[in-house]
């Protein structure tokens, strides 16, 4: 951009721009160093120590990791609970989000209203949402079991205990999470609407029905946003904590005691900072590996504009 000014001031301008660039980025650069890079390095270091915030950290090598992996059942329980959550919540969230978007991707009346309605649960605070679903899933007076009552008597079965039943609690949390599938729907929808109309017209002339048009045009061209939501869903899924802290306290019988919950307890309740740091790095590592594996799917992602 400095090219157009007089020759003499060119180098001066570039020099100045360097300084100005750093100056403008400095709040973020400082933040990166102080609030991100330093804590990350520090937690890596702490993961090899025993530290209770009273006496100073003591280096114990890989002991924290060894204890977690080989003699801490709760670690494996919480990791399993989290994997269960991710494996159910991410695919179901994708499917519901895509289906909602496909339904709204048509030229009929009231699309804007429907879009608002489906998105609305996303603006609700997680605590309010937790309380609401505690009430809806309440095993005795809750609405859901009342509605299902005829079904229960038809199959002669006991009412489901939902979050009060260790074999249903994780699934209950996944299920209520689908209420917010409208968040990803918005992203899918925006991408669907970027697909040139000519593609559909051409397909229609060739005699492709709606389902085939969805399968051969819409879905392939949506892959970038599917991919984006997939990765983000995995990252968010591994951090599941708040909803369990609000609704179940990690129970019943530790069935919703997620990885993030155990880490929270270690850190805030027990002040086992070394062991908690080791858990944080395990989490980082697991997330990283799965994200990298997911990134390999990138080759199946179509980007509009790359093909012509």
């Amino acid at each position: 951009m400095a090219k157009k000014t007089k020759d003499g001031s060119l180098t001066l301008l570039i020099k100045r721009e360097k300084k100005v660039g750093f100056a403008f980025a400095s709040p973020w650069l400082i933040g990166l160093a102080v609030f991100t890079a330093f804590p990350m390095l520090a937690s890596f270091f702490l993961s090899f120590t025993r530290y209770d915030m009273v006496s100073s950290p003591r280096f114990i090598g890989l002991t924290n990791y060894r204890i977690l992996f080989f003699s801490d059942n709760l670690f494996w329980t919480s990791l399993w609970n989290t994997l269960y959550h991710v494996m159910l919540a991410v695919p179901l969230g994708l499917i519901v989000g895509i289906l909602l978007a496909l339904l709204l991707n048509s030229r009929i009346r009231g699309i804007g209203v429907y879009r608002t309605i489906f998105y609305l649960p996303n603006v609700v605070s997680i605590v309010a949402m937790g309380l609401l679903w505690l009430w809806l899933f309440q095993p005795h007076f809750g609405l859901i079991n009342q509605v299902l009552d005829p079904v229960y008597s038809l199959f002669n079965m006991d009412p489901i205990g939902w979050y009060r039943d260790a074999s249903w609690s994780k699934f209950t949390i996944v299920l209520m999470g689908l209420w917010t599938a409208g968040g990803s729907m918005i992203i899918y929808l925006a991408q669907m609407q970027d697909i040139p109309k000519e593609y559909y017209e051409a397909a229609e002339i060739d005699g492709a029905g709606s389902l085939r048009r969805i399968y051969h045009i819409t879905l392939p061209l949506m892959t970038p946003s599917i991919f984006f939501n997939f990765i983000m869903g995995i990252i968010a899924g591994f951090q599941v904590f708040a909803i369990a802290h609000i609704m179940t306290g990690g129970g019943p019988a530790r069935s919703t005691y997620y990885f993030g919950y155990y880490l929270f307890d270690k850190m805030i309740m027990d002040h086992q900072m070394g062991s908690a740091s080791a858990m944080a790095w395990v989490l980082l590592f697991v997330t990283l590996i799965i994200t990298i594996l997911a990134l390999r799917l990138n080759r199946y992602v179509f980007y509009l504009g790359e093909q012509d």
Binding site: I14, E17, K18, K19, V20, G21, F22, F24, A25, W28, L29, L32, F35, T36, F38, P39, M40, A42, S43, L46, I235, F238, Q239, G260, L263, M267, M273, A276, S277, M279, A280, W281, L283, L284, T287, L288, T291
Partner: peptide, 28 residues
Amino acid sequence: LRWPGRDIFFVVMLATMMIPPQAILIPS
């Protein structure tokens, strides 16, 4: 603005979105 390391820092910034907050939380 053009400043040294800009493009690398930009990638770093995008990467920070993927860090689980817990990894930062404890030392903070």
